[in-house]
Design a protein around this nucleic acid. Structure first.
Lengths: 147, 147
DNA sequence: CTTATATATCGAAAATGGTGGATACAATCA
DNA sequence: TGATTGTATCCACCATTTTCGATATATAAG
């Protein structure tokens, strides 16, 4: 469920938006066609968005990002990850299962121990990109974090 | 605030974890030193994690990801974005402000209109990486989405 | 089979985050 | 100055997510 409610789904309702667009563009007829082309564009854009959001959701938690960064160093047992995170076992396990569902890590069982590792180099890439982005933002403006 | 509670923060409490680690490693003394090195490693790893999580949080919403993908096509007015998303104005504005706080987009005011654009090519890169990751996961396993 | 132990899952409370109407603010126009 | 209009912010409601103790499951050992 990406979007929780369908409020203005009816393309004829919410004429407010169209009015605004008409003011912005200058012509009412052009606004209408612009709106249509925007909706068509979004249909194309929406390809795969759902799944990408799932990946970002998995990345959007400090515990999980820390786990991923840790796993850059190799393969770790749950009991090691618990200590690294300084979190209780159930919490650690929960985050690991979310990362696994998102396809970011893989599990290997060895006796009663579960060993986790990154599933792919692409995971590292995406983390590195975010680091770059963060550093760029920092050099451009002193403070970027919201609260 | 990355981590909500400090449960086992006291490095001496939660000896359970250390016990487990000792079982895993085989030696109690080695476990202790392993725990310390893990904690030191995490300290290094945690550099910038906060900010990176903020970036992923900003990306972890379908509306916002759609906005970013739209902005790949150029600069857009809020009234256009509203129509593209098919969302009310307050919601659209809210998402734009989160993206701006995360440093992913930039605003330019022109009269009473606010125009938004991507702040950087790195944003596109990170989205493309996620697409790659998603496609790889799909080819490896049939279904990856959690619920 | 029983015990011990490593991890996963459950469940309920708390925190977080999205939503959209109402309102505030800003800029243009009359 | 007052009216209009585009956008931002506020607010309460609701859905999702996180957290962690308790419990279940799985594997090994006795």
């Amino acid at each position: 469920m990406p979007v929780r409610k369908g409020t203005c789904s009816d393309s004829e309702s919410c004429g407010h938006s169209l009015q605004r667009l008409a003011k912005f563009i200058g012509d009412s007829e052009e606004a209408r066609s612009k709106a249509h082309s925007l909706q068509a564009l979004m249909k194309r854009i929406d390809q795969g968005t759902e799944e990408e959001v799932d990946i970002f959701r998995a990345l959007a938690d400090p515990c999980r990002l820390r786990i991923l960064k840790l796993l850059q160093e190799g393969e770790f047992c749950v009991c090691e990850i618990m200590i690294a995170l300084d979190r209780p076992q159930s919490s650690t396990s929960h985050h690991l299962s979310i990362l696994k569902s998102a396809g970011l890590i893989k599990e290997r069982r060895e006796g009663k121990w579960s060993l986790y590792r990154l599933s792919d180099g692409a995971v590292i890439e995406i983390i590195n990109q975010s680091r770059l982005l963060e550093e760029e933002a920092k050099t451009r403006a002193p403070i970027r974090r919201r609260d």
